[in-house]
Computed example of a mutant assay.
Amino acid sequence: MIVKEEVWESIPLLHVYEEEMDEHTPVVIFLHGFLSAKEHNLHYAYQLVEKGIRVLLPDAILHGKRSENLNENQMNMKFWEIVLQSIKEVHTLHEQLKFKNIIVHDQIGIAGTSMGGIVTSGCLAIYQWIKTAGICMGTTSYKKLAQYQVELLKAKGITLPIVDEQQQAVIAKLAPFNFEEHEDVWKQCPIIFWHGEKDAVVPFNMSHEYYEHLVEINSMKQIQYISEPKAGHTVSREGMLQVTQFLAQHLA
């Protein structure tokens, strides 16, 4: 198994693959969480490459090799800026995969944990080329999560640096990425969710409520939702194995 540190269009990433893989090998772009970095998800890459999938692990802006040594409060205030930039950079990676002749068909999946799962959800809302996806500890509504984050900060006594009108403007900017408004994608793209029911960072109901709603009104056999009643904001080993198996199965 080869792990190469590369830079694609100013995006540092780990490119993980087997030497015999070629342009017909499916690809997964796997996105890390908030305050994490690309190398922290090498265990996902290992499982996927073992199953015949090439993997790209990029660093998000202000993370890993792109860190600017901001403190956690400063990073919190830039959370949605990071998410939206990451969505743009997924498009860049898709274009680079084709430009470099690494893939000739769009057999590409997107997946991620926490912030990476949130970015994955936004990508599904706007990119039609995604063949399958894995959302671990993510959300299906940017609006709901942004409002939850604001209320959480207020409850902690943290004064936000922007007024209510500015907050609403930010939430409005996130509207195009609300995956709940793209039911056509849910019907066509195989997606696996993993979420711990005791997650206090990105609450379980941020994705599960809408999933249940869709199951009630549609046949959603291509959507799998795995929940663990005692788990918090950390994907279990079993969850990691289920997610990587699902992605490989639907890209094979």
Rank of each mutant, 00 (worst) to 15 (best):
I130G: 05
P161V: 00
K221M: 12
E165M: 00
L214K: 02
F193Q: 05
P161I: 05
L145K: 12
I192E: 09
L124I: 07
K154F: 03
F193L: 04
P176D: 04
M206G: 05
I130C: 00
E183H: 01
T159N: 06
G117W: 00
G138S: 06
I126C: 03
C123N: 09
I162E: 05
T120L: 00
A172V: 07
E151L: 13
K187W: 04
V202R: 09
Y127R: 07
D184K: 11
N218H: 15
I126Q: 12
D164V: 07
T139C: 04
A200D: 15
L145Y: 13
I118D: 13
Y210I: 08
G117A: 01
Q128G: 03
H195A: 05
G157I: 02
W194R: 06
L153F: 13
K187G: 08
I130D: 06
I130S: 11
V119H: 02
P203H: 07
H182G: 00
Q188C: 03
A133G: 02
Q167T: 04
I126M: 08
H182I: 00
I126N: 03
M220N: 01
E181W: 00
K144S: 13
N218E: 14
D164P: 13
V170F: 00
L214I: 02
K156A: 10
H213C: 04
I192S: 01
Y127C: 09
L160Y: 00
I118F: 01
V163F: 04
P176T: 01
I135H: 07
G116N: 07
Q166W: 05
N178T: 05
N218T: 11
Q147Y: 10
V170H: 11
W129Y: 11
H208Q: 14
E181C: 09
K187N: 02
S219V: 14
S207H: 02
V163Q: 08
F177V: 07
I217A: 07
V201S: 12
I135N: 08
G138Y: 02
E165D: 13
Y211W: 12
W186I: 06
D184Y: 06
N205K: 14
H195W: 06
